[in-house]
């Protein structure tokens, strides 16, 4: 059976590097996690999350630098507000807020990336495929 996909938006400076470190260390996580590189978590538009759902994803991960560490100073704080409001909006639209997860992974945190990816995969497995009408 095909597993529902999870789209992960990774910021170029921290989380994308973190995912690379997970690769260097050969840490396993499910293959349904598919990544898209953006310069900053602040670039992630709520529209991207909705588009991912519309195109078949069952979960969306947005990963940025830890608070205070954003390469662009404040981008991750902007992501935090937007995703928070988006989740509230999604809940009203019948989409479990857990299908969207914003978290922080630093450039050296390969293990953390793999942990977040595995947790997200478990969450989505538990929720089942999204299947929009």
């Amino acid at each position: 059976m095909k597993e529902p996909t999870i789209v992960g938006f990774l910021c170029n400076w921290c989380s994308y590097e973190g995912a690379d470190r997970a690769g260097d260390a050969r840490l396993e996580y499910p293959a349904n996690i598919r990544t898209v590189r953006v310069m900053c978590s602040g670039r992630v538009e709520p529209e991207f999350v909705l588009h991912a759902f519309r195109e078949g994803a069952s979960g969306v991960l947005i990963l940025g630098c830890h608070p205070g560490d954003c390469h662009y100073k404040m981008g991750n704080y902007k992501a935090r507000r937007r995703i928070s409001l988006l989740k509230k909006t999604l809940e009203q639209l019948g989409i479990e807020p857990e299908r969207v997860r914003l978290d922080w992974v630093a450039a050296g945190e390969g293990e953390r990336f793999a942990k977040v990816a595995n947790e997200m995969a478990d969450t989505i497995k538990g929720l089942g495929p999204l299947e929009l009408s």
Partner: peptide
């Protein structure tokens, strides 16, 4: 510097 925060907003 191209972070794109304004673009998203």
């Amino acid at each position: 510097r191209g972070c794109g925060t304004c673009v998203a907003a």
